Amino acid sequence: MAGKRHGLVQQRAMRGLTQEALAEILGVDRSTVVRWEAGRCDPQPWMRPRLGRALGVTAFELQRLLSSPSGVVPPGHARAISSPAPGDDEPGSCTSLREDFDRLVRRYDRLPSASLLVEAGQRLGKFELLAGDARRGRMRREFLTLQAEAVAFVGQLVWDASERRDHQTARSLYTRSLDIARHVGDGVLEGLALLRMGHVALYGVRDAHEGLRLSLSAAHAPRGASHALSAVARLHAGEAHAMLGQPGQCDEELEKADRHLARVDDWDAALDLISPGQRHRLAGSCHLSLGRYELAVRELVDAAAELPSHTKSRSIVLGNLALARIRQGEVDAGTAALRTAIEELEGTRGGGGVSVVFGAVRELRPWCRMPEVQDVHDRLFALMAGR
């Protein structure tokens, strides 16, 4: 690895970003950015397109910044990917609205969903008004696209805030997003709506057949426009097969997902859908459902290591890791994972994490008299009492 990457530091500063700001954009801890800049580790391959976009450089230029301590992008050579076009940065423009909405979405994994609902509803109302007022053409399409994304995000917030119980409202909002996506002819938006509907089927009503149908529909919806979306949809299709007790079909879907992941590039329309530890997280969940506990532990440990702390995603991973440990008879390791998962939930209140943690705690009943198990019960009770 390179020594201290002065060029990387300089490029970040040129973009007006602190280490904390860059970390927030990328959804990682500040310590991760510190290690990159110090040359102590390299960004994961799936993280590099995001890092390049945040820094306004091409993939080639980013590689030079990472490989040489003195590597610097020549003045004026960096792409101004996130810079608005002349006259497009006025309040209410598509660019400023998009940036504002993206900042809100990035807060999802770290904050309680209920705390974001009002802001998300305000954004949605504004997008609906602008879409209604805009004339036909590019601007109307842009506002309709924002409206479709905001509708789906509100659905995600409602479902999570209800601890994944309000399936009807979530599905209604996702269906509305799907209708808008089909109206504007956006295959990627259509696939994202189908994918979220599949989440409700798989993890809400526990209908694996419907979840499989929706996940496969999501994989095909972008029609080759997004390997990132197809990859994630295939991962969820694999989990549906695992829930149905179909290991062969599950493994096939995981392999298809890997092929799509290998083809994701900087310009993928759903690039932000690829999150840290995602492949490990979903593969681990598949192995857990199939009773392959050793494989599940291996994947979930890797996922937890890649995910930033204090996030909803990490609480789900740790809850599933606890389940795998408990089913192996490793009660101490299982309760340790549960304690960390509950600590994660104290800040995020993620509905998915709460559901998984409760499931793991129920499986500790045979050991309910053990002090460490009683401690987990007490922590979980204190968490729920404070909701």
Rank of each mutant, 00 (worst) to 15 (best):
A262T: 12
Q11C: 11
R103P: 03
A23R: 10
E363P: 05
V28L: 09
V9K: 13
Q246W: 01
A304P: 13
L321S: 06
L364P: 14
L307C: 03
P84K: 06
V34P: 00
A150L: 13
F153Q: 04
L323S: 12
G329M: 12
E253P: 05
D186G: 06
A170F: 00
R165N: 12
F153H: 08
R349D: 09
F358H: 11
R379W: 07
G185T: 05
M197K: 11
R196T: 00
R141W: 02
V297A: 12
I25R: 14
A303K: 05
P43L: 07
A181M: 11
M14S: 15
P308V: 09
R15Y: 03
E363C: 03
P74M: 04
I274G: 03
A322V: 15
T18H: 10
R50P: 08
Q249N: 14
E61W: 09
S93V: 10
D160E: 02
S31E: 00
K312A: 10
G3Q: 15
S162L: 08
A225P: 11
S31F: 00
G284Y: 14
L383K: 03
E119S: 15
V301S: 14
I316P: 00
L157K: 01
V9R: 14
H236C: 03
L97G: 08
Q11E: 14
E128V: 13
S96W: 01
L212Y: 13
I180W: 10
D186K: 06
E119C: 10
M139W: 01
G125S: 12
L62D: 02
H310I: 12
R103Q: 14
S230G: 10
D207S: 03
L124K: 01
L380G: 10
Q147F: 01
G56I: 06
A341H: 12
R12T: 01
A114Y: 00
D109S: 15
V376N: 05
S172N: 08
R213N: 11
A219N: 04
T95V: 04
A59F: 04
F60C: 02
R325P: 00
L345I: 12
L117M: 02
P366G: 12
H199E: 05
S275D: 11
W267Y: 09
L254C: 02
T32L: 05
G277E: 15
E190Y: 07
V297S: 10
Y203R: 05
C286P: 14
Q249G: 11
P69H: 10
G71H: 04
S309P: 03
G92S: 13
E20T: 02
E344W: 05
R281L: 14
A13P: 01
G132K: 07
G211Q: 03
L144M: 03
